[in-house]
């Protein structure tokens, strides 16, 4: 993961609340088995609308998304984060994020910064008054700067540290492997194991057929 300290890029105002992950990337794009190349899928249902913010020249190269409350709700699909990153976004700012989305962002190096709704409104005004305005996100100091305003954002200490160091979570956990092995030795016998597999007798499943028209 790349280290993140300060990022400056075009801010994109997304004046919508409850942007769920089905809006960020519809399910049809989830059939792919790769981890990259999802930029075409980002906000796919809205991209056909010429009035949509990312279809306006000034915002097209945006890398800081300023969204309404409850961003990233719904499905756990990490593809939503991949699509935002593949498009070029480095930061999403909103007053509230869904928990799973925020977690996924942290794993993938996308900064999900919590900004008070009144400050989001200020940023929207600036970005709409002067489309193409650049926004600077300073992770070390947890501030967002655009035009003549600087507002704070929140991100938990641990995620901030990991993003700034560019650290791989799995590697960090495997450093504690002894503790995992020790825990495993104490697990009770009743806890389930999937192997060896147990199930009721296998039965042939009759395939349903399309209705005759």
């Amino acid at each position: 993961m790349e280290k993140f300290t300060v990022h400056t890029g075009v801010g994109v105002p997304l004046r919508r609340s409850n942007v769920d992950t089905d809006q960020i990337i519809p399910a049809v794009y989830l059939k792919r088995i790769t981890r990259t190349g999802f930029e075409d899928a980002l906000f796919a249902a809205w991209r056909g609308d010429p009035a949509f913010v990312l279809n306006q020249d000034a915002y097209r190269s945006g890398s800081v998304l300023v969204a309404g409350p409850d961003f990233g709700t719904g499905s756990s699909r990490e593809h939503a984060v991949w699509a935002l990153k593949d498009y070029g976004f480095k930061v999403v700012l909103a007053s509230r994020f869904a928990d799973i989305f925020r977690g996924n962002s942290g794993k993938q190096g996308l900064v999900a910064g919590v900004v008070a709704q009144e400050d989001i409104e200020l940023l929207w005004k600036i970005l709409e008054a002067n489309p193409g305005t650049e926004v600077t996100v300073d992770l070390e100091n947890r501030t967002v700067h655009a035009d003549d305003i600087t507002v704070p954002f929140q991100i938990d200490d641990y995620t901030r540290w990991r993003l700034m160091e560019g650290l791989d979570d799995i590697g960090l956990t495997l450093q504690k492997e002894d503790a995992i092995t020790e825990y495993e030795a104490k697990r009770e016998a009743w806890r389930p194991k999937t192997l060896p597999a147990k199930h009721w007798a296998k039965v042939d499943i009759e395939p349903a057929r399309p209705a005759q028209v």
Binding site: S76, R77, E78, H79, V81, I100, G103, N104, K107, Q108, D169, I170, T173, L174, E177, I180
Partner: peptide, 11 residues
């Protein structure tokens, strides 16, 4: 998320 799926598979 998928990063966590990988994390659980590995650890």
């Amino acid at each position: 998320g998928t990063s966590e799926v990988e994390h659980v598979l590995a650890t």
